[in-house]
Amino acid sequence: MLNLLKCEFKKFKGTYINSLSFLGMLFPIILIALMFLVKRTDFIKHGSYNWDYFNSQLTIMFVFLIGPIITSFIAVFSVFYEYQEKTMKNILSSPNSRTMIILTKIIYVSFYVLLQYAAIAVINVLCALLFGFDITIASALDKSIHLIVAGLTTIILVPLMMFLTLFAKNFIPPLVITVAGTVSNAILLNWEKSFVSPWANPSNFVFIMEKTSKMDIIYPIACTCVYFVLFMIFSILYFNKADQA
């Protein structure tokens, strides 16, 4: 598996997946930073020129919109890229089992997404320092952990998106489903059983951690674990059984 992980790293280097996904991740932070720069006096007047407000805006944008979309984008294109460049047949002709090939992709993309979330958490702290917000090590750690947890729970979308891309051999159906799932986040916002949606769980976790939701944490944890395993099994089984011409 180590060999295949090395291959994934070499492939991702300098691809559009790499640069586009990171730009996408940076987008909300740039947007909010610009908003704070332009409306600085208004925010000061209303007492909202602080890191709590900056961070809450960023977290909402991440867990509801950008996180699931970018995670899906990376997962979809890590598979679709192989079809697009006609390199899937090269991988399948190598002495590695199909299970190992798809498992490596899931693991690599999951780590890659987590790494991007970690990078955003660091940039978030840097923004707080740049804007001169009151910041302590404890609050920096706390807010960073929220973002990392959001990232960790978004990972359940990785095997689902890979399965859909393998099934459709195209990027459009999984991305349409991603947009639909992300839009449904807004509808499910106040629903007590929103944990059934794989797209809503990152926000559920963050709201529970921020104590703004009374949902029992066991439900989103159980759903996240069940979905991840289930989607992973689907992907492995389908990849093994289906013709990959």
Binding site: K10, K11, K13, G14, T15, Y16, E85, K86, T87, M88, K89, N90, S93
Partner: peptide, 13 residues
């Protein structure tokens, strides 16, 4: 070793 139809490469590499 094989080439099935057209050879596949990572074009950016």
């Amino acid at each position: 070793g094989s080439i099935v139809e057209t050879p596949g490469f990572y074009e950016n590499l």
